[in-house]
Amino acid sequence: MAIYHLALASEWEAALASGSYTTSTLGVTLEQEGYLHASHAHQWEGVRARYYADVTEPLVLLVIDPDLLGVPLVEEAPAPGTTETFPHIYGPLDPAAVVEVRPLS
């Protein structure tokens, strides 16, 4: 089952050129956070509304095949006060694991 990650289009393009995507979430790197945030199909729109609503730069939705990841994927326990778990990617994202890139308006 696919997982999803919201990205600035410019950062995704840079990842294609470098061969590695390392943005955990808006304005936070993998090095700072320790993992890349990801979502399940029913979660990404809520993440966009909460964290990316004011972004004016073009966004893309990365559709990731977990079987193609070369780094650990961990389904994290729910945050306090919530019941939902979120997938976290513990390492840089290889663009080859991204099976679809959906431009978002």
Rank of each mutant, 00 (worst) to 15 (best):
I3N: 00
H37L: 06
P103K: 03
V47T: 04
L73H: 11
D94G: 15
L104A: 05
I3G: 00
V98L: 12
V74E: 14
G91T: 12
V60G: 05
A38P: 09
G46L: 07
H5I: 13
G46D: 12
W12T: 04
M1E: 01
A9P: 10
L93V: 10
L62N: 06
H42L: 07
T85K: 06
L6S: 07
R50V: 15
Y51S: 00
S10N: 06
W12V: 07
P103Q: 13
T56C: 15
L36W: 14
T56N: 12
L61Q: 08
G27N: 15
E57G: 04
F86Y: 12
D67Q: 09
L59C: 09
R48I: 00
V47M: 10
L59V: 14
A14D: 10
L61R: 08
A2T: 14
Y35G: 08
D65Q: 09
L8I: 12
V99G: 05
A7N: 03
L26F: 13
I89H: 02
E13D: 15
V28N: 14
A77W: 05
H42F: 03
F86P: 00
L104R: 01
P87N: 08
S18H: 12
L30Y: 07
A38Q: 02
L36Y: 04
V99Q: 05
W44R: 01
Y35V: 11
M1F: 00
P87A: 05
I64A: 03
G70I: 05
S105I: 06
Q32T: 15
